[in-house]
Design a protein around this nucleic acid. Sequence first.
DNA 1: AGAAATTGGTGTTAAAATGACAATAAGTCC
DNA 2: GGACTTATTGTCATTTTAACACCAATTTCT
Lengths: 229, 229
Amino acid sequence: MSEIESFFKSAFSVDNVIFGFDGSELKVLLIQRGAAPFKGKWALPGDLVYPNENLDTAAERVLEQLTGLRGVYLEQVKAFGAVNRHPLGRVITIAYYSLIKISDFAVTPASFAQSAHWHTVLDVGELAFDHNEILDTCLRRLKLKVRMAPVGFELLPPKFTLTELQQLYEAVLVEKLDKRNFRKKILSMNLLLDLNEVQEGVAHRPAKLYQFDRENYEQFVSEGFSFDL
Amino acid sequence: MSEIESFFKSAFSVDNVIFGFDGSELKVLLIQRGAAPFKGKWALPGDLVYPNENLDTAAERVLEQLTGLRGVYLEQVKAFGAVNRHPLGRVITIAYYSLIKISDFAVTPASFAQSAHWHTVLDVGELAFDHNEILDTCLRRLKLKVRMAPVGFELLPPKFTLTELQQLYEAVLVEKLDKRNFRKKILSMNLLLDLNEVQEGVAHRPAKLYQFDRENYEQFVSEGFSFDL
DNA sequence: AGAAATTGGTGTTAAAATGACAATAAGTCC
DNA sequence: GGACTTATTGTCATTTTAACACCAATTTCT
């Protein structure tokens, strides 16, 4: 390939690691590739960035086209640009991850979405391109982030129980947490609004429902508070 | 600009935030642009990425061409790709920061290096392109990193005193630290090798010299230790 | 030679955070 | 009503943090 040809074949894309939580496991939304290269392989949803499109916008677009969702948590992680990461030319990709409430997701009519499925993050098998590496990097980043900022709530429904919250943290951190200590710590932050409601339809003592108090959080942050779990 | 033209004009670059420490202030190495756009303005050293060049390699190249240094600490931070960040076309840039020992730096004969100078990070003025934003992002990242990993030593000479180390942390974190507590904590990690040497040529009681014990650090990490300051 | 000036080096303690640990409460199901 | 399942709650020992002040070693000045 001449240098000129290489240049013509260079492009940039975004890839989006879409995380979800099903109540017990951390999941990632993958699509099955319908075309070469890597036809039939599972891959992260992504697309080339349009010439007049910002990177964040492209990542939001990919997310919305696949899930129909807007305004969800989205964070850029890193660029991946190994020379041969894409078999058809020089493509560097900017990796993002987003956190969505798994119940909000419904397959859209978009053609490529037919093959979208949730996979357990710890068991995704071999993905297309360098997507295993991208996923690992995003996972590590999420583990850090979830301790430093209250982003875990993005993965839960608006109303949740303390046990659900703890299970989420355990799934993300891959680590068992002490129930009493966890509850003590999270409640002491005053970021949870007690809804004075309880679970319904469970075959045991129903748990109280809470809501993340974003207003309080922003207020506390402006007063110097920093989330730390 | 037609879509095709835009595509032809798209490219990617790396920009490198090169940090140094002069004993009291955190510095960044900037170059004065000799050509349009932003001629005469201070900017981060950077370059387009060659078609067959990895991103990390490009960042290392930029660093070496400017400073002559190889094998120094280098970390990718983020991609910046706002549509209009570059006045001549679509250029997304991958930001890196590197940590060098300021005494190792000597201006190389390379033409563009003539205008390279160290600037205090807190007082760089208005830079070319979106380089102020890039610098800010790298600074924030460095602040995080320096607490989570022993990268601060990369900015110090091989032999240093505890006071120098503390001043480095104070400069990076923009925060005064307690002398006794700092020394207690850092020494308790067993990462400093006491060289049994003292400073020379100072007009007061000379301080003991230490060295970062990388071997010990790697050993500890493999045993589950994680640096935390 | 002694005093002044400068920076180096050190320990205690009270308060806060962490981590380990188990019994009772509130529901459902049979 | 009894078995079952999950929810909820507090104590205590240990560790970590944060606040705080004086003597030591060296050079410089007179």
